[in-house]
Design a protein around this nucleic acid. Structure first.
Length: 556
DNA sequence: TCTATTTATCTA
DNA sequence: CCTGTAGATAAATAGA
């Protein structure tokens, strides 16, 4: 069931017979989405997987028309995965590269309407959509672990639908609570974009203490100069370095920096820009991070400071169900590597407590440091010291990330559980230089040192890639499954729970109060489904911490 | 004057 | 010998 915008029309290719019947069919043509709406809903009843070029160009208009389709294949996202994956061979030769590589997110001009669609949308033609889909199916037919790749593409495409819905539905946001919180922390806002009153007070205090009456504390060079003139031998103005100092200016300066950050990143200007109709409408970028995590375009949705989370308030008669996957990355590592010892350590709700029980470390904070050190590639400090025991106790789990690191250091590429492959290292020169040692023998020492360093840097990247990327896949499967389960829920008045937020390993659902317990159950079911889909009968558990709250500030 | 980089701080 | 991953965002400043 393929769909494309072409020459100002909506074209629909509906297969005449069974899926393997390749007879060409004449496309159905509609002048706009409104005209096609009833036909789309009729076809949707059979539960098809819709195929289109780019969800960003289709879903906003479907949502504006009140149409929520269940399943799709986003050919742009699928193509990006398949072209890079080491589990399959992308064919060489002409492949409409310029069409697919040039796809841009449509401009964000408020709510899309039914009428202005054809002008806004430029994308692949229906013929190009069908050709690309056929190409991807051929590639999948001969792929290794094709089932995993298909799961990844389905999850990624479902994620694209979720991202569009999150933006459309928005996150409940209380201007009143946000404004009150800003006023209590920052004081009165300034009329002409100047500093809020509390920041102005702190600025005056800092200027007095440093005897620098014209100092702008937002200017790093000016501030550094002023600190040195006051006799403080600092190298930077970073928080951790300032904290070491014994000087009356430190306290107001640190407070100024913290509040200044809040004012500029999530202050009144942010509120005006991003919140309308009591909803925050963030612009998520699916697979915007190389590891497959999501990114955002403006609005800072993935960096909402804890200070203002209490402004996320459920509507009257509603609740927020906030769930996060506890210690997701180490558990993913245990499942991927089949490390039964680590699986046992994670059999309770707290994997770090399990590490203590295994005698690897003495305390829970040490367990956390050691585990993160293994995932990130720490070699020194406390994490480095704890590493030998971790390696000995969990040889399979730690072996997997060590191997990924070695591969990266050699300039190789690594692949996640479902099949997303890391990019090749950027500067080929560094690898030949390192390379090994043979060809690099006549290079100056400084260049060999640079090469060794970038080799190790890349090793840390590939080490983390396999775990972060596979965790992102689990989270995507969880999210997609939850979306499907939520679609079946509604209260007596036809009100439905809606996904409201997604943050790497955390989801939020905005739901009518009487459905809250069903949503909690759905969140758990979706997690169990994600685990089974990805890892079959793994002994590794993926516990959630779930809270039903009135506002986001009450969660965690 | 406009664009690119640096610095700092926020998130998992 | 090296000194833990992935990002976004804004303001100030450096450079064309």
């Amino acid at each position: 069931m393929a769909l494309a915008w072409q020459d100002g029309e909506l074209l629909l290719a509906v297969p005449a017979g069974p899926a393997d019947d390749a007879r060409p069919v004449a496309p159905e043509r509609y002048p706009d989405l409104g005209a096609a709406r009833d036909r789309l809903l009729e076809l949707e009843r059979a539960g098809p997987r819709w195929v289109w070029g780019d969800t960003r160009q289709v879903a906003p208009h479907l949502l504006a028309a009140g149409v929520r389709l269940r399943r799709c294949t986003d050919l742009r996202l699928s193509r990006d995965v398949l072209r890079r994956s080491s589990r399959c061979r992308w064919p060489s030769g002409p492949a409409d590269d310029e069409v697919w590589d040039g796809l841009q997110a449509p401009p964000d001009e408020g709510v899309p309407s039914l009428l202005d669609l054809p002008q806004l949308v430029t994308g692949p033609t229906l013929a190009q959509v069908l050709a690309e889909h056929a190409r991807q199916q051929r590639v999948l037919a001969t792929a290794e672990h094709a089932g995993r790749l298909r799961l990844l593409l389905a999850a990624e495409s479902a994620g694209a639908l979720v991202a569009a819905e999150l933006k459309h539905d928005g996150m409940p946001w209380s201007r009143q609570v946000h404004d009150a919180q800003l006023r209590s922390l920052l004081g009165e806002p300034a009329a002409f974009g100047g500093r809020p009153s509390r920041l102005e007070e702190l600025c005056a205090e800092i200027r007095g203490l440093l005897r620098a009456p014209r100092l702008n504390p937002d200017s790093q060079p000016e501030l550094l100069q002023a600190l040195r003139t006051a006799g403080l031998g600092v190298q930077s103005t970073r928080q951790w370095e300032l904290e070491q100092l014994q000087h009356p200016v430190v306290a107001p300066l640190l407070e100024y920096k913290k509040l200044s950050r809040l004012a500029t990143a999530h202050g009144w200007h942010w509120l005006e820009t991003w919140v309308r109709d009591a909803r925050f409408h963030p612009d998520y970028v699916v697979a915007g991070v190389v590891t497959g995590r999501w990114a955002t375009n403006g609005g800072g949705a993935l960096q909402l400071p804890r200070q203002i989370r209490s402004a996320v308030v459920a509507d009257p008669g509603h609740r927020l169900v906030v769930a996060d996957a506890a210690q997701l990355e180490p558990r993913i590592l245990a499942a991927m590597s089949g490390d039964e010892q680590m699986a046992r350590a994670g059999s309770g709700a707290d994997l770090y407590a399990g590490l203590v029980a295994d005698g690897v470390v003495a305390t829970r904070p040490q367990a956390k440091v050691a585990m993160l050190g293994a995932l990130y590639g720490a070699t020194s400090g406390e994490a480095g010291q704890l590493m030998p025991r971790l390696l000995r106790t969990y040889p399979l789990a730690t072996g997997l990330v060590e191997e990924a690191a070695r591969t990266g250091e050699r300039g190789g590429q690594v692949t996640t559980w479902l099949g997303r492959t890391s990019p090749p290292p950027s500067s080929a020169a560094a690898w030949t230089a390192l390379g090994g040692e043979v060809s690099g023998a006549d290079l100056p020492e400084s260049e060999r040192r640079d090469a060794r360093r970038s080799s190790r840097d890349w090793g840390r990247f590939t080490r983390n890639f396999v775990v972060q990327g596979s965790a992102a896949e689990w989270a995507l499967c969880w999210l997609a499954g939850l979306r499907t389960l939520l679609a079946g829920l509604a209260d007596g008045q036809g009100r439905a729970p809606r996904l409201a937020y997604f943050l790497h390993d955390e989801v939020m659902v905005h739901t009518p109060e009487e459905l809250a317990e069903q949503v909690v159950a759905a969140v758990h079911r979706a997690a169990a489904q994600a685990t089974a889909l990805m890892f079959g009968g793994t002994p590794v558990e993926f516990p959630l911490s779930v809270a039903v709250v009135q506002d986001y500030g009450q969660a965690k």
